[in-house]
């Protein structure tokens, strides 16, 4: 349809005419927050936001990640993990562990039957309570954090930044990665604008913060 392309671009050029002006873009907004990445204050802010979204927050230290996660998934029959997940986090889990990767993906029915999924994250924004995944091997394909009904996301405290621009600028070097921003469990406000958590995405979001 190069014809339509030529015509649309031609119409746009004609519409703009001679006034192809240079529009200056001011950027006076905050790009760095007051709270240092990984500080207690920034983690507290993130926790406040996550709780507001009805996510469940758990605290762990590096040696206790495995047991903290194990307790959260104990009722599941199978649990999905991306192949790049830290093996130390997987010690002593009760459910059967199913590994997923782009090369060897699980089918949708298997994901649907899984009791939970456990992943890492790329970065988290405290101000908005947002966890950002970029599909690298420790976070996996987008489908695995979507289809299972419980998502356990393990986040290191030093991955928590204050403001959204700080988080976006960490992703910016690799914009083409498949990226998902998650702010709490799935929700809808479509009925009388009253918020209900738990629609199509995971109805339970556990965030394990590791310090």
């Amino acid at each position: 349809m190069s014809d339509a392309r030529t015509q649309i671009l031609g119409r746009a050029r004609e519409a703009l005419g001679a006034d192809e002006l240079d529009v200056p873009v001011p950027r006076e907004y905050r790009v760095t927050g007051d709270l240092a990445p990984g500080s207690d204050d920034v983690v507290d802010l993130l926790v406040d936001r996550l709780v507001d979204y009805r996510a469940t927050v758990h605290h762990a230290t590096t040696p206790t990640v495995a047991e903290t996660v194990a307790a959260l998934i104990a009722d599941a029959r199978t649990v999905v993990v991306p192949t790049g997940l830290d093996v130390a986090w997987r010690a002593d889990w009760v459910p059967e562990v199913l590994e997923d990767s782009r090369e060897e993906p699980l089918d949708v029915a298997t994901l649907d039957a899984a009791g939970a999924v456990v992943t890492a994250a790329r970065v988290a924004c405290a101000d908005t309570g947002t966890i950002l995944l970029d599909g690298e091997p420790d976070q996996g394909r987008r489908a695995i954090t979507l289809v299972p009904d419980v998502h356990v996301c393990v986040l290191r405290a030093d991955q928590v930044v204050h403001l959204l621009p700080e988080a976006i600028r960490m992703l910016a070097p690799h914009p083409a990665r498949p990226i998902t921003w998650i702010s709490g469990p799935s929700a809808t406000s479509d009925i009388e604008l009253s918020r209900v958590e738990g629609v199509h995405g995971p109805r339970t979001l556990h965030v394990v913060i590791v310090r």
């Binding site: 936001r49 908005t128 914009p175 990226i179 998902t180 921003w181 702010s183």
Partner: peptide, 8 residues
């Protein structure tokens, strides 16, 4: 403050 999901 943020919608639950944004996909890129």
């Amino acid at each position: 403050r943020m919608n639950p999901y944004t996909s890129l």
